[in-house]
Structures are given as structure tokens and as C-alpha cells.
Amino acid sequence: MRTAIVLFTDTPFLLREAGEIRDLLSGMEWMDMQVWLFYHKEKPVWVPDIAGSGLSLKLIFIENPYQPEAFLGLLEAVQKKEKVEFLIFSGDGLGEELATRLAFRLNGSSCLKVDQCEKKDGSVEVSKPVYGNHLKARLTLTQQPFCISPARRSSRPTRVIPLPGSASGQLALEQVPVEWVKSIFIDEKKPDKEWVHADMILVAGQGARCRENIQTLERIAHNLGAELGASRPVIMNAWMDMDRLIGASGSVISPKICLVAGVSGSGMFNAGIEQAEFIVAINTDKEASIFKIADIGIVDDMMDVFTELEKLILSDRPGSITDREMP
């Protein structure tokens, strides 16, 4: 099956996104694979190593990287030449938008948040979470080209391989003008996502009750040597920064230890922590769904448990200072 992976080099999370695609495709034999690599600033000198060497590479310059309409026009032009049957996009917002809209324009099939996929008799069968992650649906994509993007998972970033000197692969295409935008301003601040790689992550939910308690938890997390993440209501109440959101529409984490407290355990949240090695859940309600995905459960007030835990850890740590100042 003629397949193309579509990526954009200028996104800050390129290698992680490539890692998600590599993991989705692992175990499958994908013949005849191309990578369609968009770039805006500088022509890339390396590419993510998704399926080893031997990929055929197409380099596509994009003049206006802010408008999906501009990407779509170029993708249509490339597809007209290449006629691939299967396109895999990145799992970020751009990839999802392009997969959906390109499939629509080409009368193909599209599916997002795919966590498994398989070739079947000239078609592709995918599986994806539905009903707030409580169930999975298997779906057969019926119309070519099949356009998909992967579900978020905590994939290792891919390695990179230098761009082979000979692989010009540069496509000369006409840019698509976008006239409806009158002005554009970006307050450049790459989201802080480094914290998701920490070995220990403490996660606070609405059960934290107020901003003051979140501030206390920030101190406790710091003293525990952990990072602090949160569920949607904590972020929506502006108790914490948006970068710290965990779940299907936030970050997916897989720390060695995850201490999750005051979270009811909705499927959309759980998708964000399920891959942690060891999960401790703290909740006042014994019936809370969060206990279904935990290794250890404590039914009690989260603030009381954490306050004591902080004391224990600090007293075990020689020379440690209580109430260390926040960085």
C-alpha cells in the first residue's frame, strides 16, 4: 500500500510526534513508504527516523505556516502526483485538521486518535477510544485515500538521520494564498512540556478545592522531588497553568510514580495517566473510578495525606529544609 507520513519540521514537538507514528506503525510491514516533510524557516538537514532508512522523502516549502488552508492546497497538489493510498498525519491539532479536511476533499476516509491500525484486504482497520475512553471502537476505513492521525501516547522521541545529500526530494509547488486573515500576532512562548518526563508526578483534581491548596501542593511536589499536573477543572478554574493539563486533551504522562488525588477518574482524564508505571490514587469517595486504574488506593482527604507524606520524606532526607522556598 502506497503510504505517506506527513510532518511539519518547524513544530517544537516534531520528534515526539514522529515517535507516536512510529509506535502506531510498529509491528506492521509498510511497503512503499514516503515522508512528506513540510518546512518553513530553514531547509531541514535531518529527518526523524521513523521506519529506518529507505524512505523516500519529499520536501515541501510552506510560505504561510499559520494557515491550514495553505497546507491543504499543497497537499492536494502532492497527492495529485503521488497518488498514495494511505496518509498518516501527526497527532497534534494541525495533523488532525489536515487529515480530516484532506480526506474530505479527496473523497477518502479519515479517523483521528487512532491507537491501533492494521491493513486488511486493501483497506485499513483502526481502533480508537470512544465514550470518553471507556470503550474502544473498531472501524474499517472504506474509501481511499485513508487519512489518520495517532492517539496521543507517551512515545519516546525518534532519533534523527541526516538528510541524504542526494535526496533532493524538493518539490516545487505554487503556494496557496490566504486572504481572509487581516493580521496575525503570535506571543511566542513554547509550552512548557519538559515536566511530563519527570520520574514522579503528582496530579491534583477538583478535590483540591481552591487555589491556596494548589499552591501548597506545588510546594509539596517540589519537596517530594516531583512535578505537579492537574485535571481539567483545576486548569479551567485558573488555579494552574494550561501547560499542566493532563488527559486526552492535554498531556499524556508515563512517570515511574504517579500520585493522583482529588480526581474522580473520568475516561478522558485517565487516558493521560494510564501508562504510568505505578499509580497511587487518593480520594474521599471509595467508589471513585480512579481506583479502577490504580495500584494503591487511599480513601481520605488528599491534603492531609500529602502533608504527612511531605513530612516523612523531608525527615528521611538528611539536611533537608522544611518549607523550602519555591523556585
Binding site: V130, K136, A137, T140, F291, I293, A294, I296, I298
Partner: peptide, 22 residues
């Protein structure tokens, strides 16, 4: 309105964890 995919079943993913309460 064309259909671009056909349902092939719903299933409940297994959780491998069994909680121990303290």
C-alpha cells in the same frame, strides 16, 4: 451522505491493575 467507515465492533479495554487499599 457517503459513509467513510464501517463499524467493526465495540469492546471494553481490560485494565491490568487491581487496586490494593491502604
Amino acid at each position: 451522505i457517503r459513509k467513510d467507515k464501517a463499524p467493526a465492533g465495540l469492546y471494553r479495554p481490560e485494565s491490568s491493575r487491581k487496586v490494593v487499599f491502604i
